[in-house]
Design a protein around this nucleic acid. Structure first.
Length: 936
RNA sequence: GCAGGGGUAGCCAAGUCUGGUCAACGGCGACAGACUCAAGAUCUGUUCCUGUAGAGGUUCAGGAGUUCGAAUCUCCUCCCCUGCACCA
């Protein structure tokens, strides 16, 4: 036996597979299967967590290929968008973590220098992904079709997609608000903080700015997230320490903070400061009128009114807003809060009650006040109802009144909307990021009713794993709104064909791409140039419109018809609400029905202990190549497929991976041992093994067919090993059947652990097991009788062990009493009658008592039958009880096995024979499949 | 807020759709034994409670219900996690 040197084994077989190009897919007569994973963004080195989904994809692809499908499994890179630029920027500003990781990976300073260029970043990582990750894991990806989304050909493809969307009226222009830096232009607010230095978690909030009219006609604009509380306004708050400004906006005169004026200027046209100096103190004591309710309220000093937030002016609703309540208490003004929302839990004065509970006394206790605000808001929003003070809105739920009141204020020009970040966002240049209006932003109209409905209808026909996601999808599609599809700024991608200088954003350029894998092969071979990829070309090859310009067009059209649609698009759960919906909708929008996707497979994540994201600082192995070295690729593949179902998050746990590694090493030597066994046949146990093998194959094929990868892995790597161990333990040593078993077993291991399987296969064979046919089962080889016998024996052994455990006897002799004939007859009869649906006590007794001998035992029989009938309910596999086996003969044959097991004398007696040794009268307990036992 | 997923023995994690073979797959950890100079690996057994005869008792977040029978079905409550759009 050669030692199990997994690294050598992996490298050797990978080289052999790739040298003989078994991964390349070509059109032929066989049925096709097209699978791919959502291509990864290019954002740096990946870690072991990312390999989970890729591995699932390879397992499925390999299984399908062994089942005789012509499998297409391509892969590419999603290079568009921010990530590669972000990476290049980090290199440029010498971000120490980034530079360090590159050095650690073995890059020279010159090589690092080159990565200041985002295109170099894509090139470099593209290579790392293919060579160090995918090939290193033995994936039979069709590498001849590799592609990236920033290649010239891909861009032509995306432009074609947008021509088609336009044709179908699915591109629309409307107003939009986007993050913007006054110095740098458009910026992205995202968690990776590529463009910005703080505020990656910020959300855009929509404030309603309500216009309060002062005596002199000036407007005091108060911003709120709760317009429905307008009925409870008792006063206004301005900050006495702030100097406000007077502005002209859309023909009106407003007073607001300087910061607010700046922000409004980006969201509305014609904003102009006309008076620089309105100290807050000058406003205090004046009055203004509340719209709708038309009541006059005083302006009071409130130091919590932050000039940085919205307009810097706050309307006061002390009954329902903790900040307002506390401020009112602090000013000592004799103003009574006006309660306008009925909510039993919080009583008459909700804000006061919660402030009291949290023990808040000052406007400066912002943390507690925020908590109080949150509590009141949530309760009121969900369960609150507006009361009699709210005019025609009385009795309405807060959640619906809110929208109605807001719409009324907006449409009557008594308010407008102002967008604001939930937290401060600072650009990398140091400037504050604002929200800017884009009057004519292009959108993909995913809200389109026809498109939505057709997509929902298509989902019904799809194979979606897990099923829960299939049920969720219609709701997601319904909810999916128009999506801004282009932007300006630092961003890689395809030029938008209808507006110069704008780039298509990366969600929108990654929806239809699986079809591009069909042509990327010709691009890579140099047969197809970007300049030839005209609208006519795509129309012809994808839609069959027009005529083929040349033979190549015809060939590609043939490929498209053969390979498309996609059978499985596999991706992580992060894709559920964005990528998969647009993947479906773009196919539905553009391609004919027969080319729409057949299936989606969603997998969950690998997390660090305690549900954290994997990171090196937390002790996770980041580099995939490093992990491959420590654990071995097959061990990792087995770990991914077995440690949990694909539809739960799994925790990365190095010690568990080691267990799998040991398990494989063990399996490796076990198989060598099995193959060295050279013995003759033993009819019963040989038939048993054959029966079990066929049963396992059935289970495994069924599991794989439903992509139940964990079940398949469990059967192959655990149950089958248990079976073969039992066979050997029971004295099985039939060389022919062992050989056959191992060969079938190796084939079934191949999708999950291809390297070790290939290695062991080559002990006897020259061909690739990766190209072999997956085993099939033959139900005729199921042998119920032999299985029952082994079950009987196992049950007996367990019973003896339990008795030994409880009694702590060291056995000198064990007597086993098999079932008396009559009990077997009665049991069989019961199951027979049950099968015919005629089971009842009188029927049973009538039939049994036709036998004269039985009549003598009538009383005993009825008692026993009653017990069996009662127990029978629990038994599902009833068929096996109708099979007759002679327990005595069988167990007598196995006496020597039992003797070696318990190291004492074993005596087998039929319970109904006259001449037996039974000092404790145990034999009366014997029943079918449950021999009685006496130990001394 | 909107939407989705989940809570199973010391831990991880199957089972839930299709109720009965479920004291509940598998793995880890722990304990005992074998092997070994030793360690590791491997193998055997035990691991909810009780029990000197293969049994009984109490469990699957909590509560209520349906049923001959519920981890599985229904309703309510509590707790945890995830996604939400110009980030991929």
């Amino acid at each position: 036996m050669k030692p199990y040197n997994y690294e050598d084994i992996e490298r050797r077989w990978q080289k052999n597979w790739f040298d003989s190009k078994i991964y390349e897919s070509k059109r032929n007569d066989k049925q096709k299967f097209f699978i791919h994973f959502a291509y990864p963004g290019v954002s740096g080195y990946l870690h072991v967590g990312h390999m989970r989904g890729f591995t699932y994809c390879d397992i499925i692809a390999r299984y399908k290929r062994m089942q005789g499908y012509n499998v297409l499994f391509p892969a590419g890179f999603h290079a568009s968008g921010i990530p590669s630029i972000g990476f290049a920027k980090k290199v440029e500003r010498k971000d120490p973590i980034t530079i360090n990781s590159l050095r650690e990976y073995g890059l020279s300073d010159e090589e690092i220098e080159k990565l200041k260029d985002p295109y170099e970043v894509v090139k470099y990582f593209g290579n790392v992904y293919v060579e160090d990750y995918w090939k290193r894991f033995g994936f039979l990806i069709d590498y001849s079709r590799s592609m990236s989304t920033i290649s010239p050909g891909y861009k032509k493809f995306i432009q074609w997609q947008f021509y088609k969307l336009k044709e179908k009226n699915l591109l629309v222009q409307k107003q939009h608000y986007a993050p913007f830096c006054p110095n740098c232009g458009p910026v992205a607010v995202d968690k990776s903080e590529t463009d910005i230095s703080t505020g990656g978690n910020a959300e855009i909030l929509e404030f309603t700015v309500i216009k309060f009219l002062m005596d002199d006609g000036t407007i005091l604009p108060a911003a709120t997230l709760r317009p429905e509380t307008i009925f409870g306004v008792t006063n206004m708050w301005v900050n006495p320490d702030v100097v406000y400004v007077k502005i002209k906006i859309m023909g009106e005169i407003w007073i607001c903070s300087r910061e607010a004026a700046r922000k409004l200027n980006y969201q509305y046209d014609d904003v102009e400061i006309i008076d620089e100096e309105i100290p807050g103190t000058h406003l205090i004591g004046k009055k203004c009128r509340i719209p709708i309710v038309d009541r006059e309220v005083p302006i009071l000093p409130g130091i919590f009114a932050d000039p940085e937030v919205a307009t810097g002016i706050v309307m006061s609703v002390p009954a329902h807003a903790p900040y307002d309540y506390i401020a009112l208490v602090e000013t000592g003004e004799p103003i009574k809060p006006i309660t306008i929302i009925d909510i039993p839990e919080l009583g008459e004065k909700p804000a006061a009650k919660v402030c009291d509970e949290l023990n808040i006394h000052s406007q400066k206790e912002t943390e507690k006040l925020d908590e109080a605000t949150d509590i009141v808001y949530k309760k009121e929003f969900h369960t609150g109802v507006l009361n009699d003070l709210c005019m025609e809105y009385a009795g309405m739920k807060v959640s619906s009144a809110k929208e109605e009141i807001k719409d009324r204020l907006l449409s009557s020009n008594q308010a407008l909307t102002m967008r604001e970040f939930s937290e401060e966002v600072i650009c990398r240049c140091g400037e504050k990021v604002v929200i800017k209006q884009i009057p004519d932003q292009w959108f993909i109209k995913y809200s389109d009713e026809k498109l939505t409905n057709e997509s929902i209808k298509h989902v019904e026909k799809m194979n979606i794993y897990p099923i829960e996601y299939k049920e969720e999808l219609p709701g997601v599609l319904e909810w999916f709104d128009d999506r801004a599809c282009i932007r300006k700024g630092s961003w890689l991608g395809t030029e938008f064909p209808f507006k110069e200088g704008w780039i298509i954003e990366p969600i929108s350029d990654s929806t239809l791409y699986p079809i591009y894998y069909i042509i990327s092969k010709y691009v890579n071979e140099g047969k197809l140039l970007a300049m030839d990829m005209t609208e006519k070309f795509f129309d012809y090859i994808f839609l069959g419109k027009g005529t083929a310009k040349d033979a190549l067009w015809g060939e590609i059209r043939g490929d498209v018809l053969y390979w498309y649609p996609v059978d499985i698009n596999l991706g992580g759960k992060e894709h559920k609400t964005v990528h998969f919906p647009v993947f479906i909708m773009n196919h539905v929008a553009i391609l004919p029905e027969e080319m729409r996707p057949n299936g989606i497979f969603v997998h969950w994540w690998v997390t660090q202990k305690g549900k954290e994201k994997i990171s090196k600082s937390k002790g996770g192995v980041t580099h995939i190549a490093e992990a491959a070295k420590i654990y071995g690729v097959d061990a990792m593949r087995l770990y991914y497929s077995h440690v949990g179902s694909p539809f739960v998050d799994i925790e990365w746990d190095p010690s568990t991976v080691i267990i799998y590694k040991n398990r494989l090493a063990n399996l490796y030597s076990l198989i060598y041992n099995i193959l060295s066994i050279d013995g003759g046949e033993n009819k019963h146990i040989d038939r048993w093994l054959k029966s079990m093998l066929n049963r396992r194959i059935k289970n495994i094929v069924e599991a794989f067919d439903e992509y139940n990868l964990r079940v398949a892995a469990n059967e192959i790597f655990f149950e089958m090993q248990k079976d073969i161990n039992w066979y050997i333990k029971r004295g099985g040593k039939n060389k022919t059947i062992l050989q056959y078993y191992v060969e079938s077993w190796l084939k079934m291991m191949t999708p999950i652990t291809p390297h070790i399987a290939e290695e062991l296969w080559h002990i006897r064979y020259e061909s690739f097991i990766s190209n072999a046919e997956f085993p099939t089962y033959d139900e005729k080889l199921f042998s119920m009788e032999d299985e029952i016998k082994e079950d009987l024996l196992q049950g007996l052994i367990e019973d003896i062990q339990e008795i030994l455990k409880v009694t702590k006897i060291t056995p000198k002799r064990i007597c086993i009493y098999t079932t008396p004939k009559w009990k077997q007859t009665v049991t069989k009869k019961i199951f027979e009658l049950e099968g015919k649906g005629k089971l009842d006590m009188s029927n049973l007794m009538r039939e049994i008592l036709t036998d004269e001998d039985m009549k003598k035992k009538a009383k005993e029989i009825s008692k026993f039958a009653g017990k069996i009938i009662n127990e029978m309910r629990k038994i599902q596999d009833k068929q096996r009880y109708t099979i007759d086996i002679d327990e005595t003969i069988f167990l007598k044959e196995e006496t020597s096995y039992l003797e070696s097991l318990f190291n004492c004398d074993i005596e087998i007696y039929p319970a109904d024979s006259k001449d037996i040794y039974d000092p404790k009268g145990k034999s009366s307990f014997a029943s079918p499949f449950r021999p009685a036992i006496y130990i001394e």
